[in-house]
């Protein structure tokens, strides 16, 4: 294999975003992006008996809403890619179990939205599928239960910790002769682990992976940060974002801060109690991109976006065994084509 060959994949046939939708819980709906979400719940139980079922319901709601907004019927969908944070990726598989459509359950921690989008775009670009849905979700309560403590357990959080977003986002990717928003390039990230063991500092665990993927993307495509309207990282939070910008600046002498933003910093009011370093979870980048970013691209306010979703591939078991947290960052480039 030629080592100098660029790993950035250019999608010549321009698979496009036919529609996108988001479903969120209370804290997200009352946050700064509240107006942009499609489905908002005033109760984090989402009308279900358990947190796990509630998360699955969120994902299904986002998915069905995205299908409804597109001109595609559910029978025309060739495939669904979905992922979440829960063991065995149950939110996705339970959400689609009655849909009778080919399914790929993905795990990339909080990077899953870009991961599923990239795979969908590739299959459409290659002509293997006409329409694919990509969806991811997370739920504060189910994540706390699996990764941390019971909800009612009284404990304090460190300032570097992040709050898992209760939300889901879904995209319908398809081929369209006259695309409005297209997926033009993708880059699958490498696993990077620089020895961060603090599970309350996921941003720091993910920052090196994000810095590496973004730097590789920029250098492979011969572009500068100014060429983009927005470089959007997944959920690095406050600590991770500043680390990531620092690393890129130190290593490549490139300052991405003028065009950089982070979904984890956008979804909540950062001064609110319990938010600390920002939002996180698969649902964070999913519902921010599926709602706010897509609507800004539709109106033409932003025309070129690097969506770099970051994931901390953390396992509670391995963390207890003293292992560090590997990070990953997948990148999808969105461009506005139509007028």
């Amino acid at each position: 294999m030629n080592r100098n060959k660029t790993r950035v994949i250019e999608l010549k046939n321009r698979p496009c975003v036919l529609s996108s939708a988001s479903a969120v819980g209370t804290n997200e709906a009352t946050g700064p992006l509240g107006n942009y979400f499609d489905i908002k719940y005033s109760d984090d139980g989402i009308g279900e008996q358990t947190w796990e079922k509630a998360e699955s319901r969120l994902l299904k709601d986002a998915l069905m809403c995205a299908i409804e907004k597109s001109s595609v019927t559910i029978d025309e969908l060739d495939m669904i890619f979905a992922g979440d944070l829960l063991n065995q990726c149950t939110s996705g598989s339970y959400a689609v179990r009655n849909m009778n459509i080919a399914f790929g359950g993905l795990f990339g921690a909080c990077s899953t939205m870009a991961y599923s989008l990239a795979l969908s775009a590739l299959l459409v670009d290659g002509g293997y599928c006409n329409y694919i849905a990509a969806a991811t979700s997370s739920h504060f309560c189910s994540a706390e239960k699996q990764f941390r403590y019971p909800l009612e357990y009284g404990c304090q959080r460190s300032p570097s910790s992040q709050r898992t977003v209760t939300g889901a986002g879904a995209f319908i990717i398809g081929n369209n002769k006259k695309p409005d928003i297209a997926v033009s390039k993708v880059l699958f990230g490498k696993v990077v682990d620089l020895g961060v063991t603090d599970t309350a500092n996921m941003g720091a665990a993910m920052a090196p992976a994000a810095a590496e993927s973004i730097s590789e993307f920029l250098s492979s495509t011969n572009t500068l940060p100014e060429d983009y309207d927005l470089i959007l990282t997944g959920d690095l939070g406050m600590v991770g974002s500043s680390l990531m910008r620092d690393i890129i600046k130190e290593q490549t002498d490139t300052d991405i801060s003028p065009v950089h933003n982070d979904c984890g910093l956008m979804i909540y009011d950062m001064d609110a109690k319990g938010i600390n370093s920002g939002g996180s979870g698969c649902g964070c980048s999913a519902c921010v991109t599926a709602s706010y970013i897509m609507s800004k691209m539709k109106t033409g306010d932003i025309k070129k976006v690097l969506f770099a979703a970051t994931g901390a591939l953390m396992s509670p078991t391995l963390s207890l065994q003293g292992e560090s947290i590997p990070g990953i960052c997948h990148i999808v480039e969105f461009i506005k084509c139509g007028g």
């Binding site: 300032p159 570097s160 990077v192 620089l194 020895g195 961060v196 603090d198 500092n201 720091a204 090196p208 590496e212 600590v239 500043s242 680390l243 620092d246 690393i247």
Partner: peptide, 16 residues
């Protein structure tokens, strides 16, 4: 890529 030691110093500085 940073070395683990160098990065852990950086993280310490950046974490409130």
């Amino acid at each position: 890529r940073y070395s683990v030691n160098k990065y852990s110093e950086k993280v310490k500085k950046a974490t409130p």
